[in-house]
Design a protein around this nucleic acid. Structure first.
Lengths: 211, 211
DNA sequence: CCGGGCCTCCACCGTTCGGTTGAGGCGCAG
DNA sequence: CTGCGCCTCAACCGAACGGTGGAGGCCCGG
């Protein structure tokens, strides 16, 4: 049982390259090649492939929107040049079954297509490491725009507030006086435009300062 | 520049299979094979390989603990038979650079080793799909084990606290008196084992109750 | 029928927080 | 040298919170 694939990328060279790699495998069949979003959606709905390989950036309808439209009909593998954090998040929210960088190499591409066809999901290692950095306890800064403008010390205090520490505990943790902690907190609150420490915590959590 | 790898698995057949696959590649060199956790840790510390391939279940010291011990020294790729959710979570917390199922096939294994050596991370498609399924829009499990036992009303209050609302505002939001809000909060705090509303907020955020 | 959980409220009191004002020290750019 | 920003602390006061001990109502199950 061969895996039927629709390939969509507006760059002809890339599209040909993808197809070439896929056609070299005898368990994979490329049933359509498209050069923009709408035609990809149409092809998927008409041909009902097992997998749709979509460039994330395409004319008229980008890969993410196209993925959203066909996510119920087929497994979508996103191909892209850059593993931009925001794009990855949005793609994963859409529910794609794969996320492959264009420079990942044939083995990864083939593994992603086969994984998608099998109901699994493969994410390019370069992207995965970024994901883990942002999600894992080991990963750190990822400075959110909303927290920009805070000084280093203020960020320290904000992070501890977000973990539920009282001012006295924060003072002890950072070897400061409670007065200093309060000063940092008042200043940070003013800059962040929040009214109390729980809103600070909410901001810290939603911005990824703490997890 | 070849990738130097330490392989550790207590099942000889598996260990030989892994080594065989790796030795077939001319950019990879297996510098040690170990059959338990302590010897794997020792081998890593002595040989300083680029990648350590660790079975998650090994005598005396399992792969996770071994990974924790050597995570600073080398990139760790976990190999395992089952992609158990909890094991995956704990592995990712430890900061592994790969998570490969034993039935994933040579291409995935090789890709994982090369990705790890390059500072990236590859997760087996079968595991990735489980991760994505559990992933809420923020990348955390949609289910909230820690919040179990709270009543509906208490959850309402907790969610509003997590958004930074004061007791008076929560009372207005839910058309209650401040006294009732405080009661719910005290009860919820006792059940959750937290000391103040910011810890409630932290719990709500980290459990995915609010985003 | 009666216990028990849940939801709703009240009063009281000590602790903590929010915000202000004011102050000294440090390092750095103008 | 002179600001200026950052970090550090202090005193003070009103507002909010944390915790306790009640109270009545509801519904459900034994």
């Amino acid at each position: 049982m061969t895996i039927r694939v629709v390939v969509a990328d507006d760059q002809e060279m890339v599209r040909l390259g993808l197809s070439m790699i896929l056609r070299g495998e005898d368990d994979i069949e490329v049933v359509a090649e498209c050069d923009d979003g709408p035609s990809a959606v149409e092809a998927v709905r008409r041909l009902r492939p097992d997998v749709a390989l979509l460039d994330i950036r395409m004319p008229r309808l980008d890969g993410l929107e196209a993925a959203r439209l066909v996510a119920q009909d087929t497994r979508v593998v996103i191909v892209t040049t850059f593993g931009d954090d925001d794009l990855v998040d949005r793609a994963l929210d859409v529910g794609v079954a794969g996320f492959v960088l264009k420079d990942a190499g044939p083995p990864i591409l083939l593994a992603a297509v086969r994984a998608a066809a099998a109901g699994d999901a493969l994410i390019s290692p370069e992207v995965t490491v970024a994901l883990l950095k942002r999600r894992g306890p080991t990963g750190r800064p990822a400075t959110d725009p909303r927290l920009a403008g805070l000084s280093d010390r203020e960020l320290d205090v904000v992070a501890l507030v977000a973990r539920g520490r009282t001012n006295a505990e924060i003072a002890a943790d950072l070897s400061l006086s409670v007065a200093t902690v309060k000063t940092h907190l008042v200043n940070a609150s003013r800059r962040l435009g929040v009214r109390n420490r729980v809103e600070i915590a909410a901001l810290a959590w939603s911005s990824g300062l703490v997890r």
